[in-house]
Design a protein around this nucleic acid. Structure first.
Length: 116
DNA sequence: AAGTTGACCCCGA
DNA sequence: TTCGGGGCCAACT
């Protein structure tokens, strides 16, 4: 236990869940936070996304939206419209920065990962 | 060391 | 219905 224990950073936990999101699907920050057992730390989930660029593995942050299905983080992408463009590439319809049929495309990490 | 910020969410008026 | 404020926890200045 000396020197870098197996302690996984809060960010990595989020990244792992996000990476589990199948293509053509989307989830919300709150859902991920709740899946990690930190429903109140939904803000940190978005913060972790900001650090997703530091992730060694590619993180599909474009599949993560707020509970309203709105692309709140599109402005943080390397290029404007990058998020929507990727979502459309997955087969997801995005209108006015909002995911259409969000409820149907919503991917619940708790159910998929087995969170009770 | 302390204060501010933030890719959010929930509740009251 | 829209608008405003509080809470939460970690990173940033």
């Amino acid at each position: 236990m000396s020197d870098t224990p197996e302690r996984i950073d809060f960010f990595e936990q989020v990244w792992q869940v996000v990476r589990e999101i199948p293509p053509g699907r989307v989830t919300s920050y709150g859902a991920i936070a709740k899946a990690l057992g930190a429903a109140k730390s939904s803000r940190m989930v978005g913060f972790a996304m900001n650090a997703s660029h530091a992730a060694v593995v590619e993180v599909p942050a474009h599949r993560v939206v707020n509970r309203n299905g709105v692309l709140t983080g599109k402005h943080h992408f390397p290029a404007p419209g990058e998020m929507q463009r990727k979502l459309e590439a997955e087969g997801i319809a995005v209108v006015d920065d909002r995911v259409q049929n969000f409820e149907a495309l919503f991917w619940n990490p708790i159910e998929e990962l087995g969170g009770d």
